[in-house]
Design a binder for these strands. Structure first.
Lengths: 128, 128
DNA sequence: GCTTGACCTTACCATCATGGGAAGGTTTAT
DNA sequence: ATAAACCTTCCCATGATGGTAAGGTCAAGC
């Protein structure tokens, strides 16, 4: 199967498929007649895995580790869970940071008239 | 005042101060003896403004707009509030996305034993 | 057999905000 | 005078992705 079809079936852009190959996240696909890549059903499976892991916010580095574990039938689920839990912790921290921003901003915004007048507590808050 | 001192007083790294100057977010500081930049108290004020706005997650583009409004004494607070509200909306969307990831991940992780055994619902979920 | 369009290839550049480092000049304190 | 601390510019790297250009290939219709 050519790269366009692989892209359609996996949801990963052709550009990114080539990129994943270049960083060795994906084994180099054999070339059909020495120019076009030829993907297998297995490749699609891997691409879908990557796609889902990325959608869950895992970094490429984490995805690489997860793929390693996924392929290793003798893995311990402990290792997978550790990566996942670390990622969850990271996500929660980011959420907290963003929520802090929102609450500060809402606090500033709720005192701002938002009309023609130049007086603005938001700018005052930023300028102190 | 030299760039190191400006950095200390504003919380913005010297590297970033130069960068802000290069993208014209900041007026080019006069040079002391034709090589060292010479910052004023006003510059520190602006740098602090930028620092706080960045800490609240505003993009550089938004910061540039906010500085423009901050300097313009005839601005309408409406414009400031519009930028702020758009940013709040954006932040909330990002929070929702991250929360979605967390809830999916927690769902997967809670079924994973996290022990020596290779069986792992997390990897199964990613591989489908 | 030829043209056209859809597809593939590589290679390079851009993003966004930030940091690192090199190579070299200046100032300040000892 | 020397050393440490500072400044300058310039180039490179990040992470994951998209864009584009220049060129090769394949498939379908004429």
């Amino acid at each position: 199967m050519k790269i366009g079809e692989a892209s359609r079936q996996s949801g990963v852009s052709a550009k990114m498929i080539r990129y994943y190959e270049s960083i060795q996240l994906l084994e180099a696909a054999p070339r059909h007649d020495n120019t076009y890549r030829d993907f297998s059903g297995d490749d699609i499976h891997t691409l879908r895995f990557i796609h889902r892991a990325r959608a869950l916010g895992f970094s490429m580095e984490e995805v690489a580790k997860l793929i390693g574990l996924w392929r290793d039938k003798t893995r311990s689920s402990r290792d997978v869970k550790a990566i996942t839990n670390a990622h969850i912790t990271d996500l929660k921290e980011r959420i907290k940071t963003l929520q802090g921003m929102v609450s500060t901003l809402e606090h500033l915004a709720c005192h701002c008239h938002g009309d023609e007048r130049p007086n603005c507590p938001i700018l005052e808050g930023l300028g102190e």
